[in-house]
């Protein structure tokens, strides 16, 4: 059942983005979608709406980039709880450290080992 829910929610996140691209002006590029989704994830998470979605749909909510925003927000909030104001600076990035490092490392290696086909 969790697989079906993941599929549907993961798909729906993308449908909304597709409509944003197709129904707005050319000024909405993939970069704007990614930025908007991360910030959207942060905001949803701040209002406590994102965790219930993850509990319900699993990877359907963690795999979209909004999940990245959720991790950032929850990390920063937990940081505040543990270390006060300093935690607001350290908690967010610490929570997404694995993802960022993986993207940088794999990205770098791919850029070195592959030649673009064109």
């Amino acid at each position: 059942m969790i697989f079906l829910k993941a599929f549907v929610i993961g798909g729906l996140f993308c449908v909304v983005a597709q409509l944003l691209i197709d129904l707005t002006t050319h000024k909405v590029t993939p970069a704007h979608i990614l930025v908007g989704y991360v910030v959207g994830g942060v905001v949803l998470s701040a209002f406590g709406l994102y965790q219930p979605l993850i509990d319900w749909a699993g990877a359907g909510a963690t795999v979209p980039i909004t999940g990245f925003g959720h991790l950032l927000a929850q990390g920063a909030i937990q940081g505040v709880e543990q270390k006060g104001i300093l935690g607001a600076f350290s908690g967010g990035v610490a929570a997404v450290a694995t993802g960022i490092s993986a993207a940088v490392i794999f990205g770098y290696l791919a850029a070195i080992f592959f030649k673009p086909k064109g």
Binding site: I21, H26, T29, P30, P116, K117, G118
Partner: peptide, 11 residues
């Protein structure tokens, strides 16, 4: 525009 290997749908 965009790098050619970037996943962008062309209108």
């Amino acid at each position: 525009r965009f790098p050619v290997e970037q996943g962008v749908q062309r209108p």
